[in-house]
């Protein structure tokens, strides 16, 4: 296609204006979180302060929420990697009774809105004594249907020769998984990790329902509660909370954005 420089400049200007409207909320968040507004100062001007971060990282308990989010994510990620590979491998390579109907079940789990499951899940967690613990946010999410689907499709596409050769050499099924299937599946596992991490880190509804106490809150729930509590209109405090909640992700985004975009694109089947 032809690119004349006049049109290119126009295109660039439009994109730059749009980009500014996309950057503005982040800049606003940062500026607001570092500025104390005193009466008598003209609008938009403020004094530099770290008070809001002191509040958020101190009394408001954000380090605890950060730890909770991280704890839940770590275990959910590890479980999803291990189980998606093993279950995906079983679906891809073994022939067993009810294989097809069971795999249809995996697909159907992806279609049902999670809100339909939330009341019985709360009921179950109360009965198991896991309500209001981090385990309630971990156990139901250790084997995700979409991840199984992803791994099964990927492993099916791998040549089975290497596995057969390893099997002929007497390797156990676990050893074949560890030394043949997993190394070959690295790209799919990366996609799985990225998708699961974003979804789990941002998860809101279930952590909101399955926990009550502040000490077991994850970041998104804690921030939503913070935005409704006594600091509901303390914009500096709220923006410091928002920035503490989002800066780790923004940093990770800049480091891994190529992988994240690849992950989103190939994981487009799931929202």
């Amino acid at each position: 296609m032809k690119h004349n420089s006049f049109r290119q400049r126009g295109l660039f200007a439009v994109l730059a204006a749009l980009a500014l409207s996309y950057l503005y909320p982040w800049l606003y968040m940062l500026l607001r979180s570092f500025m104390r507004h005193e009466p008598g100062l003209s609008d938009g001007n403020g004094l530099f302060t770290l008070d809001f971060y002191r509040l958020v990282l101190g009394n408001a308990g954000f380090p605890t929420y950060l730890y909770n989010s991280f704890f839940v994510l770590t275990i959910v990620l590890a479980a999803n990697v291990v189980f998606s590979v093993t279950v995906g491998y079983a679906f891809a390579r073994y022939r067993f009774p009810f294989r097809k109907p069971l795999f249809w079940m995996v697909l159907i789990t992806l279609m049902v809105p999670k809100q339909t499951l939330m009341i019985p899940l709360l009921d179950l967690m109360v009965r198991l004594g896991l309500h209001d613990t981090l385990w309630a946010l971990i156990l139901p999410f250790c084997v995700d249907g979409f991840n199984l689907f992803l791994m099964k499709q990927y492993i099916e596409g791998l040549p089975p020769d290497l596995e057969d050769a390893a099997r002929a050499d007497g390797a156990s099924e676990i050893a074949i998984l560890r030394h043949v299937v997993v190394p070959l599946s690295r790209p799919a596992i990366a996609v799985l990790i990225i998708n699961t991490a974003i979804i789990n880190w941002n998860s809101f509804l279930f952590p909101l329902i399955l926990t009550d106490t502040a000490s077991v809150r994850t970041l998104p729930v804690a921030l939503a509660m913070f935005a409704q509590g006594p600091y509901a209109t303390d914009w500096g405090a709220l923006m410091a909370g928002a920035s503490v909640s989002s800066l780790p992700i923004i940093a990770i985004f800049w480091l891994f954005q190529k992988e994240i975009i690849e992950g989103i694109t190939s994981g487009a089947l799931k929202d």
């Binding site: 970041l219 989002s246 975009i261």
Partner: peptide, 15 residues
């Protein structure tokens, strides 16, 4: 343009 979509919607809503 992509960044907001991977940030928690609660963060966005707070801002």
């Amino acid at each position: 343009f992509f960044l907001p979509s991977i940030i928690s919607i609660v963060v966005t809503a707070t801002i």
